[in-house]
Nucleic acid binder design. Structure first.
Lengths: 195, 195
DNA sequence: CACTTAAATGACTTGCCGGTCAGCAAACGG
DNA sequence: CCGTTTGCTGACCGGCAAGTCATTTAAGTG
């Protein structure tokens, strides 16, 4: 009888458009009209698939962190410090910078919805536990220091990596300089882990 | 003849009120009416001392970073790695957390005025140069590794410290846990610097 | 092809907030 | 105590953007 559309596909299309807009201009600066134009539809249509701007961004970060988590989970556990470092290098791939700025906007006080912080905080909690396991294993085989609680150590490394992300993103240095800074930070972390 | 007021004092009063509001609720979420109420005056009065909300926040971060810079500049140059570490510990005093969240809002894409990023970026540039000098001296006396460009090393340490700030601020753990994480990060940095 | 009904549209409504300004208050001098 | 000048006030304005909904479009069906 009537017209029928693929709802999940429409949602995905809208999410893609929103991701593009948000990473380019930020969450607050992006208007729903921008997202609509980018997705090739009218503003009202967005509200047939999402209850509002909130749901769009929350869905986006949920799926983004879900993906990262799945990626990291699928990697084999590192058997040496070198293994772990190359894993880190992969994670700090410079490609992800765009999303990073958006995440800082969401973590900032301007984004009042606590669900955003919860999603991101939950990811970091999980990652800390995941890496703590790695650190415990590496410490047991004498590859890294064992004078620290692995969970606290993991948290420290995560926080430091995040700072690296932030600075690479916000002060966006040219490629060679960015690589040099990233390598310096990773070297520092590696030596730090060895103890 | 006419009424005369102490303009600098009024500006300071407004800045104090604004700082309180911004650090509590963030820049975007703070209305000029909030600042006025906090400062105990009418909204219109604010515009007799500042051209707008922009000037208020820019003045605030300028003076904030100016203060930090003066503080750091006044400290004696560290003569050992331990000296440097206690200096770091002082800087990462947990008191400063409130302002940190605000800074991330300003660095995020939601705050479009480039002057904010410029002020903060300028501060980090200066700090990198300042610490690079320290690192060069410590490397010369064999206290830390000398296989890295001191400036790049300084940048890495700054970025990592910033990440530490971010995580301590946003995910605000309880005091003892926060201290443990801070100490773990500093230990990591110390070992990393030794090489 | 006509008819039904889901889907799409975009002008409109609504609320918000930065910024303004006409009127009022207060301080000082003569 | 009045006149003058500066300072203060808060109701109002204008623009902006999220979200709505009456109307239009178009896909599927007999």
């Amino acid at each position: 009888m009537p017209k029928i559309v693929d709802k999940p596909k429409m949602r995905a299309q809208i999410l893609d458009a929103a991701m593009l807009c948000f990473t380019q201009k930020g969450y607050h600066a992006t208007k729903m009209a921008d997202v609509a134009r980018q997705a090739g539809m009218a503003k009202g249509t967005l509200y047939l698939y999402f209850t509002g701007k909130d749901e769009v961004i929350l869905t986006l970060i949920q799926s983004y962190f879900g993906q990262i988590r799945a990626e990291i989970e699928s990697l084999p556990a590192p058997h040496s410090l070198e293994d772990y470092l190359s894993l880190l290098r992969m994670i700090v791939s410079l490609e992800k910078r765009k999303m990073t700025a958006l995440i800082f906007e969401i973590l900032g006080p301007g984004f009042t919805d606590p669900r955003g912080v919860q999603i991101i905080g939950g990811f970091f909690d999980w990652l800390a536990g995941h890496w703590a396991q790695h650190f415990a294993d590496l410490a047991a085989s004498g590859q890294i220091r064992s004078d620290n609680d692995p969970k606290v150590l993991a948290r420290a490394v995560i926080a430091m990596l995040d700072g690296l992300f932030l600075h690479l993103t916000v002060f966006s240095p040219e490629e060679p300089l960015a690589v040099a800074r990233r390598e310096a930070a990773l070297t520092l972390i590696a030596s730090g882990l060895k103890g």
